[in-house]
Nucleic acid binder design. Structure first.
Lengths: 207, 207
DNA sequence: GGGGTCATGTAATAGGTTACATGATTCT
DNA sequence: AGAATCATGTAACCTATTACATGACCCC
């Protein structure tokens, strides 16, 4: 698999994939992305889109196809996929599916530094987190329901299913962690409490 | 919670947290980060570290403390936490724990565009993915075992535990997806297969 | 016909990664 | 003594995000 992609922004992958179906102009790409809900899976930014299109053009993956004008609107440049673009799309998707990447979710970072806060505060914060997780889960489920009502085939809902699976796992982990913090039998609790009792390091009461 | 942090790179969070314990110079921060294994949870980059230290200084969260020289090595500037820095650390951690962020894992992006590849290819790729996931899981477990042998308290292994939970969920999801693709009773399979049978869009045999 | 919002794009800025540089130890 | 690696930092280059612009349509 390619060591380093010419264009690495995942937005470019979506662009390639949409252009598989038919040539489009950038604005249309953006609209499709939003309407399609793919912006939930791939970070979308109006500005970035034009950047990515430029990059893809320079890399030879897409090419200016025609330049049309409708009414008195500004000119719109329509781009189409090249053969190299088709190949890149296939190769990139292959890589993304077959080779998991090491990523850096925010919550992992938080967990790795959690000892800097006193345990009782952490417990409260985790409870709040649980509520938010429930909301996000409901939201994902809602997306699925909406789409299903629209007869969207399940093939296009896999991301949301996966998201829900992850959220459930996170909720279970957080719930269990709250319990462990509350349970005085947890071996590392003594140390943690003690550490924050003596040096009231981070939180000397705030208003 | 603060709408927009002055410094948003998570590396800065690690810096603040280390400086809680004692003042250090940048290189030492980097070394600690790597030795400590926190680089598994927070993306570390030699260059970024200096950038972040600069940003933190400008924002008033840390301050130059002294400038020492040892042997004939270049001067090293030692930084310490300010009160504002302590507050920022606490507030930031609070936010990270209590409020889950919407993130964009690569695999989610892949899933959302997976229909662009033909199903049999996808099945193979997913099997490969399963192997890699198993490796990563073993690696995380290994980290835990190593640390445990070193008497590191479980409090500092939560990230790895969490990672393992996520990996297990992903493995289960991928396994199930492979099954669904193999099962002709899966409702959307007909459509998917058909689509790629008629227009042999992406993969006209490659050498 | 004036005020929103849609359509479309460019430019300025900030953020992060890679490459470059250079003296000091350590190893063989 | 020469090679390799550690320690330390700066600079150049990409990338990405925000802000700025501007004409068209649509509604009241």
């Amino acid at each position: 698999m390619a060591g380093k992609r010419k264009v690495s922004n995942l937005l470019a992958l979506a662009v390639l994939s949409y252009l598989m179906q038919r040539p489009m102009h950038p604005y249309e790409l953006g609209r499709t992305l939003r309407e399609n809900g793919d912006a939930r899976s791939i970070k979308y930014n109006h500005g970035s889109l034009y950047m990515v299109v430029q990059q893809l053009t320079k890399a030879g993956f897409i090419a200016e196809q025609e330049t049309s004008r409708e009414g008195q609107r500004p000119e719109r440049t329509v781009y189409g996929l090249t053969d190299a673009g088709r190949a890149e799309l296939r190769d990139w998707l292959h890589e993304l599916i077959a080779e998991p990447q090491h990523e850096y979710p925010h919550f992992v970072a938080a967990l790795s530094l959690i000892a800097a806060l006193p345990p009782d505060q952490v417990a409260d914060l985790l409870k709040t987190r649980l509520e938010h997780i429930a909301e996000q889960r409901a939201d994902s489920q809602h997306q699925i329901d909406l789409a299903a009502a629209d007869n969207v085939p399940g093939l296009f809902l896999l991301e949301e299913e996966y998201r829900i699976a992850l959220l459930d796992t996170e909720a279970a982990f957080v719930g269990r962690l709250i319990e462990r913090i509350a349970d005085p039998a947890t071996d590392w609790m003594a140390m943690w409490t003690h550490f924050h009792r003596q040096a009231d390091r981070l939180s000397p009461e705030q208003p």
